[in-house]
Design a protein around this nucleic acid. Sequence first.
RNA 1: CGGGCUGUAGUAUAUCGGUUGUACAAGUGCUUUGGGAGCAUUUAGGCUGGGUUCGACUCCCAGCAGCCCGACCA
Length: 423
Amino acid sequence: MTYGMRQSKLFTKTRKEIPADEVSKNAELLIRGGFIHKEMAGVYTYLPLGLKVLKKIENIIREEMNAIGGQEMIMTALQKKEVWEKNGRWSDDVVDVWFKTKLKDNTELGLGFTHDEQLVNLLTEYISSYNDLPIYPYQIQTKFRNELRAKSGIMRGREFVMKDLYSFDKTEEDQDRFYEEIKKAYMKVYTRCGIGHRTYITFASGGTFSQYSHEFQTLADAGEDNIYVAEDKGIAINEEVLNDKVLKELGIDRKDLVLKKSVEVGNIFKQGTKYTDPFGMAFTDENGDKRSVYMGGYGIGVTRLMGTVVEVLSDDKGIIWPEEIAPFRVHLLSLGEDEIVLSEAKKVYETLLENGIEVFFDDRIGLSAGEKFADSDLIGIPYRAVVSARSMKEGGIEIKKRTEEKGQVISESELIELLKKDK
RNA sequence: CGGGCUGUAGUAUAUCGGUUGUACAAGUGCUUUGGGAGCAUUUAGGCUGGGUUCGACUCCCAGCAGCCCGACCA
């Protein structure tokens, strides 16, 4: 689906000033660029540009989850108290991030902070035979967590988008196999989002079932986590589980570890039968015996991932979106008010659309060139194409990557060819 | 949840116990047009409630909201 947008029609505006109530780089740049709007602490609206990015990240995740057998669904944000009571997680003493509400008849409800219980409860209706397994349902959906302290812009909010996939396997071996598969799928997601080179599979505390869980940690100064990275091995250990025993098991020498700050952009858990047994989720095997189902939970904070990309990939002028998740492929600018230039820019805009290239067209008039350049740098679309009296005199359109200092003038057909490449 | 700080225009800020000033944004007119341009002009503001005072945006109290540090974060 090719999509173009005229900047003159976009209701959001860029801002020069840094918001006074934000410190984090991701919130500052995303607000200044018109990607998000802060509603309250930890709660952000995704404006047209921001939604474009969010949807692209979601689609990458969707593709990678589908590729390993994921089945997308969407569960409700409103959840029944009884389902949570069954596993002892309704109490505020057990779960301190609950948002709770009531129906008019005073029936208590919870706003989902996760969906393990709800999904297991639902699946008991569908899973009964060994023929029904394995399954890998997932959703990309809004979660609610009543954090005592929201912070770091969209990296730790009270309402945020998460992808959560759950695996249901017949045996521990099947589960282990899937676990390794999803590890690879996760790394593909981070690579496609432009942060793979600094994202480490990190050993973390495993909870009740397995010795370790794995976190996906992206190196960033804004991170809240401290991890020890073994650069030559490409793995890392969360400081919370680092001890001599762990080092020995992993065959890592302490002197090869470097302490780094990082953001947890995903985590994967083997949950065993912790959720399935309490809900009586079981299957009948080939011999007619009832057996427990092995479950795993796999999360990616989608909005946090978006914030992390901004934290990691930006410069003093603004955001630098990786190609796969940029709101548009090219930012087309017309400079000046010359009718010939404007009509040429419009023609280029339409030609780009006809060729299936997503384009953001700065067709605003009366703005100085500097203002348009500054906006373009702030918004951070990978390519900038300029149509001006100067570029036309030199025979075409000036094209420049966001990361380059200087552009070059090329013809319209060369432009199309360049922008179509590697798509 | 413990500690600290802050609420002035759409945004960012200043001054003041006695008619709130500026910049950007927005509107109008003219000029300008390759790195946030200029002149003129207009619009727009003291979080809410109480108290002190002749008089409160300013001082005090409470509430609400926001930020920071810590704790927390399957």
